[in-house]
Structures are given as C-alpha cells and as structure tokens.
Simulated assay, not measured.
Amino acid sequence: MSEAIGKAGEVSSGDQLRAKKTVVVLGAGVVGLTTALKVQERGGYSVVIVAEVLPTDEKTTRYTSHWAGAHHVLNVSEDERQQKMDLDTLKVMWDLSEPGTETAQYFKRIVQTEYYSHVKLLPPLDRMPNYTVLAPETLPAGIVHGSSFDTVTIDTPRYLRYLADRFVAAGGRLVRGAVQHLDQVLEGGAGIFTPNRTPERPDAVLVCTGLGTRFLGGVEDKTVHPIRGQTVLVRAPWIDFGRTIGKESGWTYVIARHSGDVILGGTRAVDDWYPLPRPETTRDILERTFAMCPELAPPEVRALRAPTLDDVLPLVIEEGCGFRPGRTGGIRLDVEWRKAGEGKAAKEVPVVFNYGHGSYGFQSSWGSADIALGLLEEAINRKQ
C-alpha cells in the first residue's frame, strides 16, 4: 500500500490564477467532511460546510458517523465503481496510519480474519494486503471459508474531529444550520445561517446529507432508508486483531481501536427507525462476539480458568445504535443544475450529489470524494 497519494493542499498554477469559487457542502458526516476537505485542499475554492450536527457534538442518532465501527474490508463483490472507491480510500488511510506519523493515532493496523458459513460469491478480499486463504482444517465448526489480511480500523469519533480540524486549518469553515430546502442555500448560501444573516450565493453546492436526503426539500430522495446498526463498546486493550463471521442471517464482528476500545457488533435492520439500544440486542451481540472471540475476557482471567460472558460484562462502556444511510441503487454521484434566486437575478448553479453510502461511508469516503470533486470541476469549467 505504498502508492503515493496526492499531497494535501497541493495547488496547481491554474488554480492560483483563477478567483476562488464559493462552494457549500451540506452535511458534516464522514462523507461531507472528506468531500469538503478534498475540495478545499484542491485549491481555488472557498468551502463552507453547513450542518445541523457537527462532529464535536454529543452522540446522536441524527449523526450516523459517530456510531460506526469502523474497519476497512473490501466486501463489495459486484460493484466495480464501489470497489475502486474503496481501494482508493484504503490507500489514503494506509498512508495516514503509517506508524510514527501524527495521524497514526486515529487508526490501528491489524490482521483481520474473515470467516464465512456460506459462500455464494466471495468478496474481492484478495486485493487486501497480505491476503491469505486459511487451510480448511483450521476453520471453526460451521465455517466453509476463511481468510486473513492486513487492514486498518478507525477510531471514528477522533478521526471525524481530525477531518474537521484539518478542513478548518486549510481555510474551510463550519457553520451550524438546519437546511429545510435546497433552495435556501442555492440563493443565500451559508450566510443565512450566520449571526449577521448576510446572503452569499454559492457557485456550487454539494449534497452529502446521508439519511437526511430523504427529508431535504428539493431532493426528498425516498430511495434513501435507514439500515439500523446496534453495537457495544468495551474496554479491551489486549485485543490487537479483527475478527468477523459472516452468515446469511448477518454479521458478527470484533473491531479493535488504537485507543484500546473495541467495537462489538453487529446488526443490520432495514427500515428500522428505533433510536435507542435494545437490551435484548445488546445481550445477543455480547453472546455472539464472546462465542467467536473468547479473548475478549481479560487475560488474567483466561490464565486461571475458562472465561465466561460474565467476565466481559464489566468491560462494557457504551451501547449505541446508528442509522446507516442506505439507498436503493447504491451511492448517488451525479450533477444537477438548479435555479438559484428569482427574476433577472436568477442563475443556474450546479449541485453535486454524494450520498447513500449505506455501510460504506468510511470505507469509500476518499474515493467518493475524488469522484465528487471531479464532477464539481467539470461543472465549474462548463459554467465558465
């Protein structure tokens, strides 16, 4: 994973010569933050993020990114565009996780083991670093295929704050605002949400509103739907690996973070809007993950006797749930031209859409941001 990624903040001579274009990004989840950062660091743009919930806020189901695990696993089998986005993102994250760098603290490089109780079409895991197929005689009971490879996990709350800080350091702005309709921003920009309420019509708008796109006036994409995921966070710094079992009924996973916290999951409930952790689901997650990974029990306990689930319960820090922004048809990445303003002052403004990532927000964030930037630049150049 040593391929060079473009230098952050690198600005071409052509960008230096042109006036900066004002761009508004709607949404401050991992997709919105990464997209805004990509555009701001490209040069030639003045970018402002408008969002109702920001990464420094307390956790809420209105902000999915805080609840993500998250690890990077190439598990999309049939969508070549998604695979490229995921690979491009892995390259960036691998560089950011380089030991000894300032950004390594937001990641943990691990060996990930994937088990499958059924195999119809294997995901393209063979493109992961150090991919190895496990010998059949080493597989647990009921497992028909297993593999291991190197990957990264992301300490999601800290990584989100890092993206926001890097965006601001590059000259971007964060504005808190509840956008009811796309037309509000097309005509007034981010200025209508600032204390002085000074409109500033943008040159372009990027919509990265995730699940909120279902309710955003002027878009109201009803193909967007929640995929509820519930997780349990435990303190287990001795876990330095990742492990997943995939069954037709769902996934069971253990995701270790650099901080020593470990995310246990998971669930995948389509169109389930319940905003609180269900106790019975928490118990089910703990039982499944402990059965798969008895190493969750403290090592001093395992040195003396066979551990039980009761040894893991005191390690629980938090139960949580989030609504992954699923979309029928997958991620939307395209451009529409929308009217901004009324009468003679009206003009056409390009709107770039980048939402509907489902379970793959972190995993495809940099790749989809690349595509969104390309769409933006093509639209801006057409307009000039």
Results as ranks from 00 to 15, higher is better:
142 G>E: 11
227 I>F: 03
180 Q>M: 10
177 G>D: 09
189 G>I: 08
174 L>A: 09
146 G>R: 06
227 I>G: 14
192 I>D: 09
138 T>F: 10
149 F>Q: 09
214 R>K: 12
139 L>E: 06
144 V>T: 11
177 G>C: 14
129 P>F: 03
223 T>V: 08
125 L>A: 07
210 G>D: 08
142 G>I: 06
137 E>H: 13
183 D>Y: 07
189 G>P: 09
195 P>S: 04
231 T>E: 10
220 E>A: 12
220 E>N: 07
203 D>K: 00
186 L>H: 02
163 L>P: 14
155 D>S: 15
149 F>G: 10
186 L>K: 01
171 G>H: 03
228 R>G: 15
147 S>Q: 01
226 P>M: 08
213 T>M: 00
167 F>Y: 00
176 R>G: 11
144 V>S: 15
117 S>Y: 02
206 L>T: 01
143 I>Y: 01
208 C>Q: 03
191 G>K: 03
231 T>I: 15
214 R>E: 11
137 E>T: 08
190 A>S: 11
122 L>N: 04
198 T>H: 04
149 F>N: 04
118 H>P: 05
136 P>I: 03
199 P>K: 00
221 D>H: 00
119 V>K: 02
164 A>D: 12
164 A>M: 12
209 T>Y: 01
206 L>G: 00
162 Y>T: 11
169 A>W: 02
148 S>M: 15
121 L>S: 13
214 R>M: 09
213 T>V: 06
195 P>C: 07
217 G>H: 05
171 G>P: 09
132 T>S: 10
193 F>G: 00
220 E>S: 11
124 P>S: 08
139 L>F: 06
203 D>M: 08
120 K>G: 13
211 L>R: 05
157 P>L: 01
229 G>H: 00
132 T>D: 13
203 D>F: 06
213 T>L: 03
142 G>F: 05
150 D>I: 12
178 A>C: 09
124 P>H: 02
200 E>M: 15
195 P>Y: 06
116 Y>R: 04
182 L>E: 05
160 L>N: 00
168 V>N: 13
184 Q>N: 06
186 L>E: 06
206 L>R: 03
209 T>R: 02
148 S>F: 07
206 L>V: 03
225 H>V: 10
163 L>W: 05
164 A>F: 05
147 S>C: 08
208 C>E: 02
225 H>L: 14
128 M>K: 04
134 L>F: 02
190 A>M: 07
217 G>N: 07
150 D>S: 14
149 F>W: 04
123 P>D: 10
205 V>W: 14
231 T>G: 11
193 F>R: 00
